[in-house]
Amino acid sequence: MPLRVLRFAGLEPWRTRGESGSMADREHVFATERRALLAEGNRLKAHYAEVGFTAGGKAAIYRVFDLHDRYEELLPESVVARCPFTGSAVPWPIDSVDLDGWYWDYDNPARRLRGRVLPTWLAMGGAVRLAEPVASAPFFCMPGPDAPYVVPRLLAHPQVRAVVAQLPIGPHTGWAVTYFGTRRHLGVDLENLWGTRRYEVYYDNGCWKGWAGRQQHTGDYDFDLGPWLDSGKLLWIAPDDSGATLREGLPGCPYVDLGGTRKLQMIHDGKITRY
């Protein structure tokens, strides 16, 4: 039985898990335990792949479930956006230590599910400018292209606006692009959640409903952010702005004309493929 099927068996997707404590405390605990969790879990996953669903394999994979749970609980939150309609900050549990964390496993991401989001929150895509060499991990990581972009099918809707923000991911530079709207049902596919093959679907009140997905293709993206910034449809947060202040307009925005290949990126065992 595939790991992904087992992993979600019996999971209560509306329940958001987490530990109390300040953000700094959570970041410290996560950084302290992360390496050991990944080392043991990757070893046990390799053992399960070798022996299958035998007695030893079952013991290994059930231990992996526990390790995933601990990893998810420890994920610290980073502010990735601020809603242009309500002014509310959007903290998100994310592994910003590096791309070798299970959070970035494209096929089986270990993520603390959001039982509820802002009623105006729609989707969050992202991009990463890689600093080589990249850390090796035994899974496929697809962090997006190497420059920030918007999805015109979403942003062209009159009731949708987006926010781009920069955040470091270990030695790499990441950009989260979050979409907000005054109505939830747009009549089009949303954007896959950053680093995964699917996106979460929510009811009008922001409660979790389920998953859907769309095949990623750079033909769906617009890397020319200038016109969107000029129109006020795209807002931005300056790098290292702890207050996450929303800024509007093209002048001074550091996220335009960044260069790059504009291709999707896939990482496996420290090797990068762009296509």
Rank of each mutant, 00 (worst) to 15 (best):
I61P: 01
Y202L: 06
L67I: 13
H172A: 05
P239E: 07
P91I: 09
R214C: 04
D240M: 13
A123H: 02
R114M: 13
L229T: 01
S96P: 04
M23H: 12
Y199Q: 03
A123E: 06
T86R: 14
M23L: 14
F8V: 04
G52V: 05
D257T: 10
Q265L: 03
D240E: 15
L246Q: 10
C141G: 04
Q166V: 03
G181W: 03
P91C: 08
K45S: 03
T86P: 13
H185L: 14
V51P: 00
P227G: 04
W228T: 02
S242N: 07
P168S: 13
C253H: 08
M23V: 14
R247M: 11
T54W: 08
A244I: 01
L229P: 07
A89S: 13
F30A: 07
P145R: 04
L118T: 00
V128Q: 01
P76Q: 11
P171G: 09
L190Y: 09
G115D: 03
G21C: 00
D105P: 04
R274L: 08
W14N: 07
D66L: 12
W14P: 02
F139E: 02
P91V: 06
Y71G: 07
R63C: 10
A123G: 05
E27N: 12
H185A: 15
A55E: 14
I267M: 06
K233I: 02
D66T: 01
R153M: 06
Y48G: 05
A176K: 11
E27S: 15
E12F: 14
E50L: 15
A123Y: 07
A238E: 12
G260Q: 07
H47W: 06
V201H: 04
I267Q: 01
R70L: 14
L74Y: 08
F8N: 10
L229N: 00
L3N: 03
V256E: 02
V164W: 10
P254A: 08
W236D: 02
L235C: 09
W121T: 12
D146G: 09
V150I: 01
W121N: 08
